[in-house]
Design a binder for these strands. Sequence first.
DNA 1: ACGATAGCAGACAGATCTGTCTAGTATCAG
DNA 2: CTGATACTAGACAGATCTGTCTGCTATCGT
Lengths: 176, 176
Amino acid sequence: MSSARSRILDTATRLFYAEGIHTVGIDRVIAEASVAKATFYHHFKSKEELVLAYLTTEYQRQRGVLGGVPGAGRERISAILTKLADLSAGPGFRGCPFLNAAAEYADPEHPVRRLVEDYREWYRDLMRDLLIEADSADATQKADLLLLVRDGITVAGGLGDQAAVRAGVRTALASV
Amino acid sequence: MSSARSRILDTATRLFYAEGIHTVGIDRVIAEASVAKATFYHHFKSKEELVLAYLTTEYQRQRGVLGGVPGAGRERISAILTKLADLSAGPGFRGCPFLNAAAEYADPEHPVRRLVEDYREWYRDLMRDLLIEADSADATQKADLLLLVRDGITVAGGLGDQAAVRAGVRTALASV
DNA sequence: ACGATAGCAGACAGATCTGTCTAGTATCAG
DNA sequence: CTGATACTAGACAGATCTGTCTGCTATCGT
């Protein structure tokens, strides 16, 4: 992996997440990544390709983080929820990058939105599998709930509302 | 209320909600509202003032819609959740305008973010009052949960995920 | 009658955004 | 050595964005 490319992607990840995608221009990414403009366009066809690269790596990273949480069945669900709550209380937390991106891309057919869809489906499936593993009744419906609570935790956490985050975790844990 | 002003505000509301705030330019609002540029700047000092007018009227409208739901105590909470679920299944639904706006305004001190805060606090207080009215134990914590579920319902609804919306309503109703 | 207000059309300035292009340097594989 | 690749700096084009300004018309309260 080229050093310039990863510097661009790291900078874009930091800026897009912290400030939003449409508000951050290519020039800004280029300047803060300390690369030449031609170098940027050598590695990425367009800004949109950079946005997709940002969300794709974020997709893989998040799957790594939550997929790496140890345990099985209910215990693993519990650990994942705790992890989520911890992250959402962290200093730089500004909500779920996918939900934030979805708010900026209104067209449901847009590749960005498809990635958001993919991530949520991955999470829902993970929850359902863990529920089935725990011999839970109504695993499908409970997985839907756990997905909605995940959405809520990231939203509330991004807005600095830790009370709502705690309430979400509590209810989710009680309901599985 | 001047006709041009309300035409501007109606157009801005439609476009900002459907396509996002940063992606819609002033020129577009002006063109679709069929007003002159000078007329726009006669009524609004800047785009930001228009954005705040959009969210402020939306704030009042939403309070009117949910505040107008009849009933008391648990029944009223139930009716409000049903209303929310119905709205989120509607054709033009693209999530909560406040949460969408918050995703575009990263600075928590920004007036837009303060409005989002206000709306969520209003909703949380409404829920807490209704819970107290229903002699619910832990009204405060349950109100936090109902707020988080509201966030989740609007997010899931905006993404077209009706299964999650239904799961959220179900759980919220069961938990109060 | 007259001044204030609201409205129109559209040019303009200045900034900013994406993307292209020129021109040159450094590295490295064959 | 040579050619391909990665990189640098920065000018440039073309679009778009916000906001100002000029000039004109219509309405309405006093």
